[in-house]
């Protein structure tokens, strides 16, 4: 299991993560980021890609 943390103080809701891991990240109707707190190990590559493309570097993956 991978735990996902987003620093909402840094996040500017650019949504780049949504394209890399849509199962985990989405923008809601108010264009604010929402995300799942946990994901399966099988999704690691997608989640790392999502963390990588975040311009604010707000996403942390915890094992």
């Amino acid at each position: 299991m991978i735990r996902i943390q987003v620093d909402m103080g840094k996040c500017q809701h650019y949504g780049q993560c949504v394209f890399e891991a849509p199962e985990t990240f989405r923008l809601n109707d108010d264009d604010r980021l929402e995300y799942e707190r946990e994901a399966n190990e099988a999704d690691r590559e997608k989640l790392e890609a999502a963390a990588d493309v975040c311009p604010m570097q707000a996403i942390t993956l915890l094992d």
């Binding site: 650019y14 949504g15 949504v18 923008l27 264009d31």
Partner: peptide, 8 residues
Amino acid sequence: VGMRSSVM
């Protein structure tokens, strides 16, 4: 400018 969902 803003309007994130429309841009995406």
